[in-house]
């Protein structure tokens, strides 16, 4: 369903992503782990067609993102980091705009907007402008935008970042509810999240994949059986090495 082939991105002389390959199938929730600056966001931005890759490509539902970005974008729902949204718009108007650019009209548009508002429990704030909302509601508004067109593929960049424990629980529950019928990629640096929602996890460090397996498989790599230790042993060495290089 989603296949990433040797994806690489250079910003000038800096290699942010150095040849990443993996694939995700229907019903899987892939956790994308790694320290800050490892290349998670850049990889996601290339898959969603926001940034053109330096080399490699991503195939989404059989479409090549470098050749046919619009077809790929149609299949993807994307929640960018920090949940950006137009602050002067109300929640409803914002979602109506998303429905418009997603080509939904009339009854289909109304249903999609109402459905997303209901799923993300935004009824109480639907006529409020986004700038006046708390971070949790803002996150949910952007989440609503991502699932509005019921996409087969959902890509979320740190969807629980900065939320309180209750809000984190809500977001995770929403992800789990949708997992069966979608391909989901969630980036995070919160390891408990992997156990909570992911069926498989990839650890990325300095732009390269250093581990790819189920949470149980990853845990088995460490003597202590704790994900934290696996994460640290796989990413710390590389991070220190790259600081020395720099």
């Amino acid at each position: 369903m989603l296949e990433v082939r040797d994806l690489a991105k250079h910003f000038g002389s800096i290699a942010a992503v150095k040849g990443v390959s993996f694939s995700v199938g229907m019903g899987e929730v892939l956790g994308f782990l790694g320290p800050n600056g490892a290349g998670k966001t850049t990889t996601m931005r290339m898959i969603t067609g926001f940034l053109p890759p330096t080399s490699g490509t991503a195939l989404v539902g059989g479409q090549d993102v470098t050749r046919n970005p619009v077809a790929v974008k149609r299949l993807i729902g994307y929640l960018p980091e920090n949940a950006p949204a137009y602050h002067s718009m109300t929640v409803t108007n914002f979602l109506r705009f998303i429905a418009d650019v997603r080509g939904l009209r009339g009854e289909a548009k109304r249903k999609a907007v109402d459905g997303a508002i209901e799923k993300c429990r935004l009824e109480s704030v639907r006529h409020q402008s986004i700038g006046t909302l708390s971070k949790g509601y803002r996150q949910r508004t952007c989440f609503a935008q991502a699932i509005l067109h019921n996409p087969p593929i959902l890509i979320m960049d740190e969807p629980t970042d900065g939320l309180d424990p209750n809000q984190k629980h809500t977001v995770r529950q929403m992800i789990k509810d949708m997992a069966a019928e979608k391909v989901i990629i969630v980036s995070t640096h919160i390891l408990e999240e992997v156990d909570a929602v992911c069926t498989r996890a990839i650890i990325i460090s300095s732009g390269q994949i250093v581990a790819n397996g189920t949470p149980a498989e990853l845990r088995a790599r460490s003597a202590t059986g704790r994900l934290d230790d696996v994460f640290r042993s796989l990413t710390l060495g590389a991070a220190e090495a790259s600081t020395k290089e720099g």
Partner: peptide, 14 residues
């Protein structure tokens, strides 16, 4: 500045 460009340019519009 606000990052909404990332939303706009990942919508199915050229």
């Amino acid at each position: 500045r606000t990052g909404t460009i990332e939303l706009l340019l990942t919508m199915p519009v050229t």
